[in-house]
């Protein structure tokens, strides 16, 4: 039966720490198979809201839902459906990799063959097989993160909450982690992930939520948010000839501003949508200009983040 509810839903969440309003009326949804990037400066309220979603903290008002179950009313049901990877590494002494995964598999109620298959799958997925008997204290940072991810997915949760999973990883480990997360989303899991490494995040997320001072400033895809914060797009045209004449021709057109011609290249700000851009391109060609490139410059996640946030801390 297909679920009619979102896999993750935060509904008007509020949480105070003394006079600090750490989470201020946060609401968003994440569907199955979606990776939701949760970004914001330090102290913005990301970890607090993730902890509330993971049943480790309680909101003062509002509620959060995992697979339709309230974290306040039915934390036990939420826990069986959720995998939480905190931003710290929880290790036991005198325990090796297999024993660590075995313990958490047992803790999630997996028994017999099911448990063995789950451990094998987690170790395959995270490529930890060669380290199966190694004490977890002696693992490198990257391997520990893999182990944490393995632990988080051991009971095949439908929702995964990953708090800064890429922190402190080298570039190769980050790329591998990114691929793992994408594969998990392809398996149908709803993933809420926070990270400060925006370039990495941009390549794996379907939607983002930007949070600052406990408030959710924007939610949507990078393109949607970008279009919302600055509706104008930057258009770049390369011609076969000098672009100066085209610049003069364009000056009289609507939606066009800030023209910059440089040799055969021309850059300008366009206030219209994609339909208007297509119309403009048709007019340029009809006017006898010979464009070889017509491109809209997309904004990066970093650009969007900088535009949306003000760098305030509380």
């Amino acid at each position: 039966m297909k679920a009619t509810h979102p896999q993750i839903e935060l509904r008007n969440l509020h949480r105070w720490f003394g006079s600090t309003h750490a989470v201020n009326d946060i609401s968003f949804e994440v569907a199955a198979g979606e990776v939701f990037g949760y970004i914001g400066p330090n102290g913005a309220g990301k970890t607090t809201s993730m902890r509330i979603l993971s049943t480790l903290d309680e909101p003062h008002s509002g509620d959060a839902f995992v697979d339709g179950f309230s974290v306040l009313e039915d934390p036990d049901r939420v826990r069986s459906r959720l995998g939480f990877m905190p931003d710290y590494y929880g290790a036991y002494q005198d325990v090796n990799v297999r024993e660590y995964l075995d313990f958490f598999a047992r803790a999630y109620g997996l028994r017999g063959g099911e448990r063995k298959r789950a451990i094998e799958f987690a170790m395959d997925f995270t490529e930890l097989h060669p380290l199966a008997t190694k004490p977890i204290d002696g693992l490198s940072k990257g391997m520990k993160q893999r182990l944490c991810l393995g632990r988080t997915m051991i009971h095949d949760p439908s929702v995964m909450v990953l708090d800064e999973p890429a922190a402190g990883l080298d570039p190769r480990a980050r790329i591998e982690l990114r691929e793992m997360i994408r594969r998990l989303a392809d398996l149908g899991k709803a993933i809420l992930i926070s990270s400060h490494i925006l370039t990495e995040l941009a390549e794996m997320v379907d939607k983002i939520g930007i949070i600052e001072q406990g408030r959710l400033l924007a939610v949507g895809s990078v393109a949607e948010i970008s279009a919302r914060v600055t509706p104008d797009s930057i258009v770049r045209i390369r011609l076969l000839e000098e672009a100066q004449s085209l610049a003069k021709w364009l000056e009289s057109h609507d939606h066009v501003a800030d023209l910059e011609a440089n040799g055969a290249q021309l850059k300008f700000r366009h206030a219209g949508g994609e339909a208007e851009q297509a119309e403009l391109l048709a007019k340029i060609i009809a006017a006898g200009f010979r464009p070889v490139e017509f491109a809209t410059q997309t904004k990066s996640l970093e650009d969007v983040f900088l535009q949306v946030t003000k760098g305030r801390v509380q």
Partner: peptide, 10 residues
């Protein structure tokens, strides 16, 4: 830091 991991388990 393993108490949270215990509590979030079933």
């Amino acid at each position: 830091n393993t108490r949270d991991l215990l509590e979030v388990s079933t």
